[in-house]
Simulated scan of single mutants.
Amino acid sequence: MMNVAIIGYGNLGRGVERSIKQNSDMNLVGVFSRRQPADVQTDGAKVFVMEDVLKMKDQIDVCILCGGSATDLPEQTPALTADFNTVDSFDTHALIPEHFTKVDRVAKENQTVSVISSGWDPGLFSLNRLYAQSVLPKGETTTFWGKGVSQGHSDALRRIPGVLDGTQYTIPNEGIITRLKAGEKLTLTTRDKHFRQCFVVVAEGADKEQIASTITTMPNYFADYDTEVNFISQEELNAQHKTMPHGGTVLHTGTTHENSHQVIEYSLHLDSNPEFTASVLVAYARACVKLAQEGKFGAHTVLDIAPSYLSPKSGAELRAELL
């Protein structure tokens, strides 16, 4: 039985709590939050102030960090790794090498283990890109995201003057996917691969035409995509666009001979992005504890960890059931 602490309790932390209940080899010590315990409503987990985590060090085998990548994890992961084995979902792709180096140094100095950048992308999609490119070295990998809610793009909508609320969906171009799978060699732009669909609630009297123009020309978010803007009521948005579905596809097309076209495809279709991401973190928390028990201190990513470390089953059971 491994003892787990949840650090932070938003959508991801709530998902981790639910996932731990499905894993009989795990015990949830509690949630540690920057908020006051009375203000945190869990599904039954005990809540402690963040400062108490060090007092309970001997009761915790691994901390699952559920903060954001922008400001929380760059500070929290190395700080907590000084005293605990940790797992995080750091997902700023360009900064992962820097994050790894910083956390690896702390973990090795303090003989702990940290599994960084777990989740589905980075995470499971990273693994599938590696498998595909290793098996079919003469090929091309393309990753498509969606259909799903982009939290960052939805937040960008809500920051526009006159916008009261908004949800944005990233939608992959199924026609392009079909053509790639058929063996076509395509040079794709950002606009070719994805379409963006926005549902927006605006203040009374707001200039909808101006808001639509602001959205479709917004650099780094919408300007490089074909974007549809739909103005709806708050009631409709609440009823139809407040869940958090997501998913995507890693598609690798390659050849093993001039006349042999091969396709590797891995897809996810998720009703709840944070709950699925949380489930991946929990599986890698198990791997983290196993690595610590073996003295394999330092930072690790999903690319470094054997698949069997994710499972509560023994090697003999896995060979009998899955090979």
Results as ranks from 00 to 15, higher is better:
Gly44Lys: 08
Gly183Asn: 11
Ile60Cys: 08
Gln240Asn: 15
Glu51His: 14
Phe48Thr: 11
Ala5Ser: 12
Asn259Tyr: 12
Asp43Thr: 10
Ala5Cys: 04
Thr142Glu: 10
Ile60Asn: 12
Glu109Gln: 15
Ser311Arg: 08
Asn128His: 15
Pro74Gln: 03
Met50Asp: 15
Ser267Asn: 10
Tyr309Pro: 02
Ala203Phe: 02
Leu28Ala: 08
Val202Leu: 00
His261Ser: 11
Asn27Leu: 07
Val113Cys: 06
Ile64Tyr: 09
Ser24Leu: 06
Ser233Asp: 07
Glu75Trp: 08
Asp39Cys: 02
Lys181Val: 06
Ala223Phe: 05
Leu73Gly: 11
Ala306Met: 06
Thr112Met: 01
Glu275Asp: 15
Thr143Ile: 15
Gly67Gln: 04
Arg14Asn: 12
Leu281Glu: 10
Ala287Phe: 04
Ile305Pro: 12
Thr253Ser: 03
Leu268Ser: 10
Gly67Asp: 02
Asn11Gln: 11
Phe276Trp: 07
Tyr9Met: 08
Asp25Ala: 03
Ser33Tyr: 01
Ala206Tyr: 09
Gly68Met: 05
Asp61Pro: 06
Gly295Thr: 06
Asp104Arg: 05
Glu321Val: 01
Val106Thr: 14
Val62Trp: 07
Ser24Cys: 00
Gly183Arg: 10
Ser117Ile: 04
Ile305Trp: 06
Leu124Trp: 06
Pro245Gln: 09
Leu80Met: 14
Phe199Thr: 06
Cys63Pro: 13
Arg159Asn: 13
Phe144Tyr: 15
His93Trp: 13
Ser69Ile: 00
Asn238Ala: 14
Leu28Ser: 13
Lys46Glu: 14
Val29Ser: 05
Thr249Leu: 14
Val282Tyr: 08
Lys147Trp: 07
Asp155Ala: 12
Met56Lys: 15
Gln262Glu: 15
His261Met: 06
His241Leu: 02
Ala107Trp: 07
Ala79Pro: 04
Thr217Glu: 12
Glu51Lys: 14
Cys288Thr: 15
Gly8Phe: 00
Gly295Lys: 04
Glu317Phe: 03
Arg159Gly: 03
Phe199Gly: 07
